[in-house]
C-alpha cells in the first residue's frame, strides 16, 4: 500500500474519532438544555409547584440580584475556602495516617477494628459536638469536612500501600534500601493512581461535610443559604445554592483531573 493511501486511512480514522466526540458532546448539551427547558415549562404550566420547585428563570433573576448585592460571592468565598481547606487537610491527614499504619504493621493490626467502626459511623452526627467544642465558626466547619474525608482516605490509601507488588520491594532491598527509601521510591509512587481516585471521592465528601457544618452553624456560606431559604420558605434560594455547589464541585473535580494528568505522565 502506498504512503498516500495510509495517510488517507489515517485521516479517515481521525475524522471518525472527531465525529464520535461531537456526537457525545451534542447529547450532553441536549440533555442539559432539555432539562432546563422542561423545568421552566412545567413550572410555568403549574404541573410542578413553582413555590417548591422554583424555575430556572426565577433562580436566574435571584442569581443576578445576589451577585449585584455581593452576598452570593461572599457566601461562595466562605464555603469555597472551607471546602478546599477541609479537602486538602482531610486528604493529607489520611495519607499521613496511612503512612504510619504502613510503617508499623503492629499499629495497623491494633487499630484495624477502630478504623472499621469509625468508617461505618455516620460522622455527620459528630457535628453538634464539634460545634460546642470548637465554637460555631469556620474551624468546626473545616473539621467537619476533614472528619468526613479522613477515615475513608486512610483506609483506601493504606490498602493501596499494601497492594504494591512485593517484588518491587525485593529489588530495592537487594540494593540495601532502608524502609524510608522503599516508601519513597516504590510505595508512594505506585500508589499515586489510588491517591488521585481518593482525591476525586474526597471532593464530594468535603462538600458534604462543609455544607452540613454550615447547616448547623448557620452563619454564612452556601449551606447557610440553604437552611435560611428553607426557614423563610424561599426555595429559589435553596435551588440557587444547590446549582452553585454543583458548578463548583464540578470545577474542583476538573482541577483534580488536571493534576492527575500531570502526575501520571507515564500512563501514556
Amino acid at each position: 500500500m502506498s504512503n498516500h493511501e495510509d495517510q488517507l486511512l489515517f485521516t479517515k480514522f481521525k475524522r471518525k474519532k472527531k465525529k464520535e466526540k461531537r456526537l457525545v458532546l451534542s447529547w450532553q448539551v441536549a440533555i442539559f438544555v432539555v432539562f432546563f427547558v422542561l423545568w421552566e415549562t412545567l413550572s410555568r404550566l403549574h404541573w410542578i409547584d413553582p413555590l417548591i420547585f422554583s424555575s430556572p428563570s426565577r433562580v436566574w433573576s435571584l442569581f443576578q440580584e445576589k451577585i449585584a448585592d455581593g452576598s452570593l460571592l461572599m457566601h461562595l468565598q466562605v464555603t469555597g475556602f472551607e471546602t478546599i481547606a477541609g479537602f486538602i487537610l482531610g486528604t493529607l491527614l489520611g495519607i499521613l495516617i496511612a503512612t504510619l499504619l504502613w510503617w508499623s504493621p503492629r499499629l495497623s493490626k491494633i487499630l484495624d477494628p477502630y478504623l472499621v467502626v469509625l468508617n461505618a459511623m455516620p460522622k455527620v452526627a459528630l457535628g453538634p459536638i464539634l460545634i460546642v467544642a470548637l465554637g460555631p465558626g469556620y474551624v468546626s466547619i473545616i473539621s467537619m469536612g476533614i472528619i468526613i474525608a479522613v477515615v475513608i482516605t486512610t483506609i483506601h490509601i493504606y490498602s493501596a500501600f499494601r497492594e504494591v507488588d512485593e517484588n518491587y520491594i525485593k529489588v530495592l532491598r537487594s540494593f540495601n534500601a532502608s524502609r524510608k527509601q522503599i516508601f519513597i521510591e516504590a510505595i508512594l509512587p505506585a500508589s499515586f493512581p489510588t491517591m488521585i481516585s481518593t482525591l476525586k471521592v474526597n471532593v464530594g465528601l468535603a462538600w458534604v461535610g462543609v455544607i452540613v457544618g454550615e447547616f448547623l452553624v448557620s452563619e454564612r456560606g452556601l449551606g447557610y443559604m440553604i437552611v435560611y431559604g428553607f426557614q423563610v420558605f424561599d426555595f429559589n434560594l435553596v435551588l440557587l445554592s444547590l446549582l452553585v455547589i454543583a458548578v463548583f464541585a464540578g470545577v474542583m473535580y476538573k482541577v483534580v483531573e488536571a493534576i492527575e494528568n500531570k502526575l501520571i505522565h507515564h500512563k501514556s
Binding site: 517484588n167 525485593k170 529489588v171 509512587p189 507515564h266
Partner: peptide, 15 residues
C-alpha cells in the same frame, strides 16, 4: 556492598 538480584520479571519502575 550489594548482591545483584535478577527476578523472573524485570520489575522496572514504570514511573
Amino acid at each position: 556492598s550489594s548482591i545483584g538480584y535478577m527476578l523472573q520479571q524485570d520489575y522496572l519502575f514504570p514511573w
